[in-house]
């Protein structure tokens, strides 16, 4: 699906413009307990793909499928060991066409 004109595209439509070849397993994982104790939770707003969702119990839910593999999350997270960050398996992940 293509985005509408104008900057006010819904976030899902924005993400739908980019191709992701989703791997069967997650390349990034987060440690739920560490995140529940995190006071900054800066990953939630800084991730350009909006993949970190705050949960009611104070934890964070992460989904890997539409990740740009940029590195922002592991750099801004100041809780050691909260994020295990790898590249997706070869051939998988984001596949830019026009960037």
């Amino acid at each position: 699906m293509r985005g509408e004109s104008g900057p006010e595209v819904a976030f899902e439509d924005r993400m739908a413009t980019t191709e992701f070849r989703v791997a069967p397993g997650a390349h990034i994982t987060i440690d739920g307990d560490t995140c529940r104790g995190c006071t900054t939770r800066e990953c939630i707003t800084a991730c350009p793909a909006n993949l970190f969702a705050p949960m009611a119990d104070g934890g964070v839910l992460f989904s890997y499928e539409q990740c740009f593999e940029c590195g922002t999350c592991y750099l801004v997270c100041n809780e050691k060991g909260a994020i295990t960050w790898n590249y997706p398996v070869g051939g998988a992940g984001v596949a830019y066409r026009r960037s």
């Binding site: 293509r2 985005g3 509408e4 004109s5 104008g6 900057p7 595209v9 439509d13 924005r14 993400m15 413009t17 980019t18 350009p48 793909a49 740009f68 940029c70 590195g71 922002t72 750099l75 984001v94 830019y96 066409r97 026009r98 960037s99």
Partner: peptide, 14 residues
């Protein structure tokens, strides 16, 4: 400059 243009890809990189 952007009016009426269609978003065709979005992404990010460090």
């Amino acid at each position: 400059l952007l009016a009426g243009s269609e978003l065709v890809e979005y992404g990010a990189h460090l």
